[in-house]
C-alpha cells in the first residue's frame, strides 16, 4: 500500500497537471487565439470567443462568454473599440479581477501597433467610426509580429514560471514569421499599386502593407449597408478609374460585391480576414498564404470573365 499511494499520486499529477496548470486564455478573435497558441504551446488553454464568420462589430455578450471569462487568466482582444458592444459587460460581470482593463490579464493588441484611419472628427453621422483608429489590424502580418512580441512578454509576466518557454517559442515563431513575411512580400510584389474596391473599410492595414490603392468602399459609411444609389455611383467611378478587384471579408454578405463584380467585370475576392475564414486559413501562416494567393489569383483574372468561375479566383460560392 505504501508504494501504491505515491504511484497513484504521480499518475494523478501527470494526468491532471498540464490541464490544471495551463494558463486559461480568452481570445476575443481567432487571430489572437492562434497567436497565443503559437506562443504558449501546451502551457496555455485557448478559448476563442468569436468566429471568422461572425461580424466582429456585432457580437453579443452570450452566457457562454461570461462563463469562460470568469475562469480566464488572460484576455487577448483587439481593442480600439472593436469589442465595445460586448466585452465591457462580459468583463464587468465575470467576477474576475485579473482580467479587468489596466490589469496584466487584460491585453489589447491595438495598443502595440500604429493605427491607421484615426478619425479627425468623432460624429456618429460618419457611421461606425472608431475613435482610436481602424481596429482591423490583423490584416498586416507586420502587426502580428509586433503583437507577438508584446504578447510573449505579457504571457511571461502572468506566468513567470514559463518565461523561458514563452521566450523560446516567441523566438522560434518570430524567425518563421520573418521568413514567411519575406516570402509573402516577394510573391505579392505584382499587387503593388493595384487599385481595389473594398466592401467594408476592413483592410487599410493590408492595403498599407501591400501597397494596394483603395479606390472606393461599397459601404457609403463604415458599418452602413451598401445602398443601390451608392453602388451605382461606385460603378460609374469604376468606369472612369478601373479597379482590379473587390475585397470583402468572409463574414460579409456577398450580394453587393457580386452585383458590382458582374457589372464592372472584375473579380470579387473573399478574403479569410482571420484564422478560420477559409479552409486554407487554418493558422496564422495559412491566413496570409491564402490571403496573398487569393489576391494574386484575382489580379490574374481581372478583365477576364471566365476566370471568375475558376476555384480560388474570386467568389468561393
Amino acid at each position: 500500500m505504501k508504494n501504491i499511494l505515491p504511484i497513484l499520486m504521480a499518475t494523478v499529477t501527470v494526468a491532471f497537471a498540464p490541464h490544471a496548470a495551463a494558463l486559461e486564455v480568452f481570445a476575443c478573435e481567432p487571430e489572437w487565439g492562434a497567436l497565443a497558441q503559437e506562443l504558449g504551446g501546451d502551457r496555455v488553454s485557448i478559448y476563442v470567443a468569436t468566429g471568422a464568420l461572425q461580424d466582429p462589430h456585432r457580437i453579443q455578450a452570450r452566457p457562454s462568454l461570461l462563463a469562460r471569462a470568469r475562469r480566464a487568466d488572460l484576455v487577448v482582444c483587439t481593442g480600439a473599440e472593436l469589442e465595445i458592444g460586448w466585452l465591457p459587460i462580459v468583463l464587468r460581470q465575470s467576477g474576475n479581477d485579473a482580467i479587468q482593463p489596466g490589469r496584466p490579464g487584460y491585453f489589447e493588441a491595438a495598443d502595440f501597433v500604429p493605427k491607421l484611419e484615426v478619425p479627425m472628427r468623432l460624429d456618429r453621422a460618419e457611421g461606425d467610426v472608431h475613435a482610436a483608429g481602424n481596429p482591423h489590424i490583423q490584416t498586416d502580418p507586420r502587426n502580428i509580429a509586433r503583437v507577438a512580441t508584446a504578447l510573449a512578454g505579457r504571457l511571461a509576466q502572468i506566468d513567470p514560471a514559463g518565461a523561458r518557454h514563452y521566450q523560446t517559442r516567441h523566438r522560434d515563431f518570430a524567425g518563421r514569421w520573418d521568413a514567411a513575411l519575406r516570402r509573402w512580400e516577394q510573391r505579392a510584389a505584382p499587387l503593388r499599386d493595384a487599385p481595389i474596391v473594398v466592401q467594408h473599410k476592413g483592410f487599410p492595414y493590408l492595403e498599407h502593407w501591400l501597397g494596394l490603392r483603395e479606390r472606393a468602399s461599397l459601404e457609403p459609411k463604415p458599418g452602413v449597408e451598401p445602398t443601390s444609389a451608392h453602388l451605382a455611383a461606385v460603378l460609374e467611378q469604376l468606369k472612369r478609374e478601373p479597379a482590379k478587384m473587390i475585397l470583402r471579408a468572409a463574414y460579409n454578405d456577398g450580394r453587393a460585391s457580386e452585383w458590382l463584380a458582374e457589372r464592372a467585370g472584375i473579380p470579387a475576392v473573399v478574403l479569410p480576414f482571420t484564422v478560420g475564414g477559409s479552409d486554407q486559413a487554418r493558422d496564422l501562416f495559412g491566413l496570409f498564404d491564402d490571403t496573398v494567393q487569393r489576391l494574386l489569383d484575382a489580379l490574374r483574372c481581372t478583365g477576364a470573365h471566365a476566370c471568375r468561375q475558376q476555384p480560388g479566383a474570386g467568389s468561393d460560392r
Partner: peptide, 12 residues
C-alpha cells in the same frame, strides 16, 4: 450579490 460558478456552462 452574484456568484458565477467556475464551469464551462454559464451558471450564476
Amino acid at each position: 450579490v452574484r456568484w458565477l460558478a467556475p464551469t464551462d456552462i454559464f451558471l450564476e
